[in-house]
């Protein structure tokens, strides 16, 4: 598996040398960002067992904050990321503390986080002066990167390709680091049986909150870049359907695995482009895949590969 990932990464690094097509690069860029979202969501859902409906909210809030700081207040893009992540961190700590202190589990946790993210969406939708309401904000600036030869604006497919690939690598490495450490074992214990975990001396509240906060902040990091690449932010970023897209990617790829969501994100991002689909049919397809995967292949693509290998 480790070799497969290394080969995949190498291929990803070399791919722009072969594929010059802007549309192919754009798909890859969106897939990298979707994969980053899915991997960070899976930290909360797949590895800690908490069905958070707050992920899209973390993503969207951060996208809005960065965009507003840059377009309205003229901040530097890189500088604007810090306060955006700080706000996401604080929001996730507040929501997480409320939910986990009251020991909301499974369905109840999902519904309450969904309610919180709807409230945030309504605030953004109605705070016209700041967010431009349902029309959203168009982003014209491009972030620039300091290099020894001066500031280089990050524009064009190839630059964004490597930037978002780096983003995915960062998110993946952080999640991998967390999961392979003692924290990962605590999270596993919580997912499987939190009462047993507690009697083994694990502070269930603290580790649930930790996982929720890390996952949410990573989603915020993706949001910061997403607004800039796509060129606009809109209240839809915080909506339940976006949360569902993320869940569909994770379920399709494989809940119990770190690489699964990456595969799921690539399949679901590329699929609508491979077979021509209108935006509506794409949503319908995502929904159907979600339903299908839950009912028919609960372990996702990675699970299928695994069981094939075991059978052979």
């Amino acid at each position: 598996m480790r070799y497969a990932i290394a080969i995949g990464l190498l291929a990803a690094l070399l791919a722009p040398l072969i594929a010059h097509s802007d549309s192919v690069l754009a798909i890859a860029i969106y897939a990298f960002m979707a994969a980053s979202l899915a991997v960070s969501f899976n930290l909360i859902f797949g590895f800690t067992g908490q069905l958070s409906m707050f992920h899209a909210a973390s993503f969207g809030v951060s996208a809005y904050i960065v965009t507003i700081l840059v377009t309205t207040f003229g901040w530097n893009f890189w500088l604007a990321i810090a306060p955006a992540l700080a706000v996401v961190l604080i929001l996730s700590l507040i929501v997480g503390t409320i939910c986990f202190r009251f020991k909301l589990k499974e369905f109840y946790f999902a519904v309450v986080t969904m309610a919180f993210s709807e409230v945030l969406r309504l605030i953004i939708l109605n705070w016209n002066g700041m967010t431009n309401g349902s029309l959203g904000i168009t982003v014209v600036d491009r972030p620039s990167l300091w290099t020894p030869i001066g500031n280089v604006a990050i524009s064009g497919g190839v630059a964004w390709y490597y930037l978002t690939l780096a983003l995915l690598v960062v998110v993946y490495v952080v999640c991998h680091g967390v999961l392979s450490s003692w924290i990962g074992r605590c999270l596993a214990a919580i997912r499987l049986n939190d009462q047993l975990g507690e009697t083994l001396g694990i502070d269930v509240f603290k580790y649930k909150l930790l996982s929720f906060a890390i996952g949410s902040v990573l989603a915020g990091l993706v949001g910061a870049f997403y607004g800039f690449y796509s060129g606009f932010v809109e209240p839809h970023y915080l909506s339940i359907p976006l949360g569902l897209d993320i869940i569909a990617m994770v379920l399709l790829g494989g809940v119990g695995s770190l690489i699964g969501p990456v595969i799921g994100a690539f399949v679901l991002t590329a699929l609508p482009h491979v077979i021509e689909l209108s935006a509506e049919l794409r949503i319908a397809l995502y929904g159907s895949i979600l339903v299908f995967v839950i009912l028919v292949m609960p372990k996702g693509i990675v699970g299928l590969i695994g069981s094939k290998r075991n059978a052979a």
Partner: peptide, 8 residues
């Protein structure tokens, strides 16, 4: 997993 406290 149960070694949590020892590590701590």
């Amino acid at each position: 997993i149960a070694c949590h406290l020892h590590i701590k």
